[in-house]
Amino acid sequence: MIYRSLFPRDVLSELDRLQRELQQTFHFSPSIRGIARGGFPAMNVGGTPQSVEIYAFAPGIDPATLEVQIEKGVLTVAGERKLPVAAEAATVHIDERFAGRFRRVVTLPDDVDANAVDARYRDGVLRISIARKQSAQPRRITIQ
């Protein structure tokens, strides 16, 4: 009797390929800095005619240790999240929360004013509000 593999090809590499394909389907514009989703902190970005709003979901961090930087139109949010270390006698059943250093980068639109930035931390969310340049804002022209 000949033992035959149940699956014709290596299952794991097939699964890998499937996962890659799925990721490419869902990430319409893969960023040069890698896959944007799934990092810490999670980020939402939105805009109004007056400002660009960035929300970074980074719970349980001392705001004084957060580093927010804008350089050449790129916004960087970096810091470190320290979690209480479990005692040796304790058992860790679930370990899903992020711990360690993090850094995330967002490319800003060209019309923002890097000098008019407002950053606030509330309920574990860092909100960065960057005003758009005065000249870029829509203006109503009165007809004489």
Binding site: P41, A42, Y55, F57, A58, P59, G60, L83, A86, A87, A89, A90, T91, V92, H93, I94, D95, E96, R97, F98, D123, G124, V125
Partner: peptide, 22 residues
């Protein structure tokens, strides 16, 4: 939400990340 669950002799401690919740 992501959670951590740690058990020791006295009981269970659960941490959950719920950013943005008041």
């Amino acid at each position: 939400p992501p959670v951590d669950v740690i058990e020791d002799a006295s009981g269970i401690t659960l941490y959950a990340d719920l950013p943005g919740v008041t």
